[in-house]
Amino acid sequence: MQFLRRQLPVIIAFVVGLSMWVLFYVPTQKSLELQDGFTLWVRIIVGFAAVLGVLSVVNHHYNKIKAKRPGYAFSFITLGAFLLMALSGFIKAPLPGFAAGNNKPDSLHFWLYNNMMLPMQATMFSILAFFIASAAFRAFRARSMEATVLLVAACVTMLGRVPLGELMKLGDPIFLGGPAPIDFPWWSSWLLNVPNSAAQRGILLGVYLSQIAVAIRIIFGIERTYMGGGD
């Protein structure tokens, strides 16, 4: 049992991890087929895990209703909506105004998705605009040198991206062919392409090197927390 829980997963991680690394450099047909095979296995595992997910959702909300925890009324709605979507997907009987079958563009299932799911998703996404405003207000308060630089950079970038900023061009070019002191589109592009890109690349370089290190730790069984195992 201990072998199955601890050592076998590490052996599998080692063999598969190393194989995938080597296969990345081998372009043969067999290598490609093997890589496709691994991808297929992942899809199969995800398929099984989806059943666990559904059970978890139902169990979580059932317990919430049973214990009458705060907000349990929402659990009724969740379970009801879950049931409705599932039934509309499984039942083939035609309903008035909807196409028969469960996988047709005019079916109830698709109608529910297009007229309920999508508007609700769009609503959540649109709230982002207001959240950005409040976050920007907090970030742009010039309380320190860094915050002031951020404020100035943000103002230049925003002005460079709107038509008004394009009209505000003042002064002669600082150097031959260079920008004017006030040329928001140019400075905005410069901010994005030079300091911003440099910082992002620095972060990403660290991320990629770290990812390789984590992969090595996992392949060689040094990092095993993700298996639920200790040391």
């Binding site: 993700y226 298996m227 639920g228």
Partner: peptide, 14 residues
């Protein structure tokens, strides 16, 4: 993610 859920449950339990 359902796979993440299964693993997270096991990791916390451990």
């Amino acid at each position: 993610d359902p796979v993440v859920f299964s693993v997270a449950q096991e990791v916390v339990k451990q």
